[in-house]
């Protein structure tokens, strides 16, 4: 008996030899990638490197062209897999927030709990309010998304994903659409999730965040993983020319 055996049997996310093409354009050219249980992995890279596509493949918002994606050991590329059920365990936060504009904040958080998790109204509302509390927006439960700032909308979006009690969270450039002064609040909420031990895959341009809270940084370019490792190593002492070139532009 050793510590290895008592650890969870499967990594949270495991991607093997993933290819993804849009028409003739091959965006992912054989990706091997994983996120361990409780691990925070930040994916960085120039635009068009395929990092968002990789993230979107993990909950199959994009259909992989070939390859295998295992989420907690379950093959989500298998047509027999209940995708809706798996997705309730994978929280996703979008660059453009994608709150439901016709519903107020509370109903944004309640809707999928009712429709996908079949929770009762009272329970769903209680959980929704807990999560609004968590992102510091308990007082905006009755507001409509259009009445909130971008930073508030993104925090509501995080609370909406958390309301499904996910095992892991995917963040697709969560701060890229925000005014600079609003980025901090969103990062603070994400930091808190890290502290709570949430498994996270974060596609981001926030190098400071990646360095501070990431367990691992993955640098992608041209549809492949070029380099990965501890944040200080990848960001502070990159081994590949392409990584150095990218970091010299963004740091």
């Amino acid at each position: 008996m050793n510590a290895q055996e008592s650890a969870p049997a499967h990594p949270a996310i495991e991607v093997r030899n993933l290819h993804k093409s849009f028409g003739d354009n091959e965006v992912l050219t054989g990706i091997d990638f994983h996120v361990g249980q409780g691990e925070v992995v930040c994916v960085i890279g120039p635009s068009g490197s395929g990092k968002s596509t990789l993230l979107r493949c993990v909950n199959r918002l994009e259909e992989p062209t070939s390859g295998t994606i295992l989420v907690e050991g379950i093959d989500i590329t298998d047509p027999e897999t209940d995708l809706n059920k798996i997705r309730t365990r994978i929280g996703m936060v979008f660059q453009q927030f994608n709150l439901f504009p016709h519903l107020d904040v509370l109903d944004n958080l309640v809707l999928a709990q009712r429709r996908a998790k079949k929770r009762g109204k009272t329970e769903a509302r209680r959980i929704a309010r807990q999560n609004l509390e968590k992102v510091g927006l308990a007082d905006r439960a009755d507001a409509f998304p259009s009445q909130l700032s971008g930073g508030q909308q993104q925090r509501v979006a995080i609370a909406r994903a958390l309301s499904m009690d996910p095992d892991m969270m995917l963040f697709d450039e969560p701060t890229s659409a925000l005014d600079p002064e609003l980025v901090g609040d969103v990062l603070a909420v994400m930091r808190r999730l890290v502290d709570e031990g949430m498994t996270m895959m974060v596609v981001t341009h926030e190098m400071g965040f990646a360095r501070e809270v990431g367990d691992r940084v993955v640098f992608m370019d041209g549809g492949v993983v070029v380099e990965q490792g501890k944040p200080d190593d990848v960001l502070g002492n990159p081994q590949h020319e392409r990584t150095r070139g990218f970091l010299s532009k963004v740091l």
Binding site: N59, R87, T88, M92, L111
Partner: peptide
């Protein structure tokens, strides 16, 4: 996409 990602 948001609705589907929530498992709806």
């Amino acid at each position: 996409e948001a609705a589907r990602s929530l498992g709806m």
